[in-house]
Design a protein around this nucleic acid. Sequence first.
DNA 1: AACATGACGTATT
DNA 2: TAATACGCCATGT
Length: 128
Amino acid sequence: MPIACAAVAEISNDIELPAVSPAFERIWAVIAAIAPGSVLSYGEVARRAGLPRRARMVAQALRAAPDALELPWHRVLRADGRIAFAPGSDDFVRQCRRLRAEGVEVTDNGRVRMPTAASSLDELLWRP
DNA sequence: AACATGACGTATT
DNA sequence: TAATACGCCATGT
């Protein structure tokens, strides 16, 4: 079992709340596994959690996530690379800060260059 | 059962 | 790139 999964499992067992959905736990595990400095879209998180077409559920899972999990929620963006929160809102600003703090380029509009299929492939193939 | 609401996605213009 | 429209899916009324 991946470390991130174990952490989520342990903590979410610890925290007793209204019977946390197993789907939420899988989503949390995927988010916990996002490497610092990289980002994922809501839809991609859903797919990796085995829940295709359930991007909105990822949003729910994030809202419901216990603080104790300390998920890297700031690494989850919309599919077009924009921050999901309303521009200028506190959450929006917080997310910008946290992303920049780990080296992610964020435009003033709150947009991040998302990895394209091509760029990811280049990463793999051109790596020395 | 019907409708509104979201930290969403995709296609189209 | 931006605006719009529509699709999707869980929840709450």
